[in-house]
Simulated scan of single mutants.
Amino acid sequence: MSAGPWCTGWYDLDGAGRRPCPGRRPAVGSRQCADCALRDQFRFVHHGHTGGYVPAALEPVLAAPHLLYLATFADGFTKVGTAAEHRRTGRIDEQGAVLASYVAATTDGRVVREAEDLVTAELDVPQHRRRAAKVAALARPAERARVRTRHAETVQQVSALLARAGLGPGLMPLDEPWTPPSDMGVLAGMPPQGSWVEYPSDLRSGGHGLLVEACAGSAVLARTRPGPDAGRYLVDLGRLTGARIVPGDVDSPETEVQEPLF
């Protein structure tokens, strides 16, 4: 494996979708090289509702129907986010949440982002969470009832705020729970604390053989060898972003892991 990080390419708004980096260059700063970052006009989407520059190719994206959602993770942390209608389920599926609800819909992507900013400003619900924290939440979850209560209370507070705010045009309230995909398996059940141990080896070096049983966002629950007595680990596949992987018949390193007692 060549760990990089290498450029992951850019998003072409003219219909081609994700394009690979033409020069297969190292990433600079985040996930892109400098050239691909300049090509990627999608980066302007987060500022289009505040009067920022919007390229012509991005206008149809902002004008398309969108949804406002709340996603709650296994430790009770809740974030607010937006999803284009055509990404209605996929956007939340990739978050790694255990509970989520759509709380509003709009025909205008600018309006939904205004609503998102309002929720953050008035209710202190953040719009971002680090990937590593999402994975860690699955390894160290909060008590199930507290997570459910936290999510329900936030949904209620956001719905009341949007009703008072009168945002428009076309902002419609929703009370629609998200259905976890079947691939989440047991990870959708908010396991008791200490159920899953984080994978102890560095994915970005050496060889790793993983038998995947369930997925939640960038996290997978996997065994390093077959058999019902084999330990299961939470593995953050997001650490492989920008890495070059060589498939092969390999085994994971032998590691003794002390499972958490509390």
Rank of each mutant, 00 (worst) to 15 (best):
Val112Arg: 00
Arg113Ala: 06
Arg113Leu: 09
Glu114Gly: 01
Glu114Asn: 05
Asp117Phe: 11
Leu118Lys: 02
Leu118Ala: 02
Thr120Val: 04
Ala121Tyr: 01
Leu123Met: 00
Val125Pro: 12
Pro126Arg: 03
Gln127His: 01
Gln127Val: 00
His128Trp: 14
Arg129Thr: 10
Arg130Tyr: 15
Arg131Pro: 13
Ala132Ile: 01
Ala132His: 07
Lys134Leu: 14
Lys134Thr: 05
Val135Gln: 06
Val135Phe: 12
Ala136Tyr: 09
Ala136Asp: 12
Ala137Pro: 13
Ala142His: 04
Glu143Tyr: 13
Glu143His: 13
Glu143Val: 13
Arg144Ala: 15
Ala145Arg: 09
Val147Gly: 06
Arg148Pro: 10
Arg148Thr: 09
Arg150Ile: 01
Arg150Asp: 07
His151Leu: 11
His151Pro: 13
Thr154Trp: 03
Val155His: 06
Val158Ile: 08
Val158Pro: 09
Ser159Glu: 04
Ala160His: 02
Leu161Ile: 04
Leu162Arg: 04
Ala163Trp: 04
Ala163Met: 03
Ala165Asn: 01
Ala165Lys: 01
Gly166Ala: 11
Gly166Gln: 08
Leu167Ala: 02
Gly168Lys: 01
Pro169Asn: 07
Pro169Ala: 10
Pro169His: 03
Gly170Lys: 00
Leu171Cys: 04
Met172Glu: 06
Pro173Asp: 03
Pro173Gly: 08
Pro173Thr: 02
Pro173Tyr: 09
Pro173Gln: 07
Leu174His: 00
Asp175Leu: 14
Glu176Asn: 06
Pro177Tyr: 11
Pro177Leu: 14
Pro177Gln: 05
Trp178Glu: 07
Pro181Thr: 08
Met184Leu: 11
Gly185Leu: 12
Leu187Gly: 04
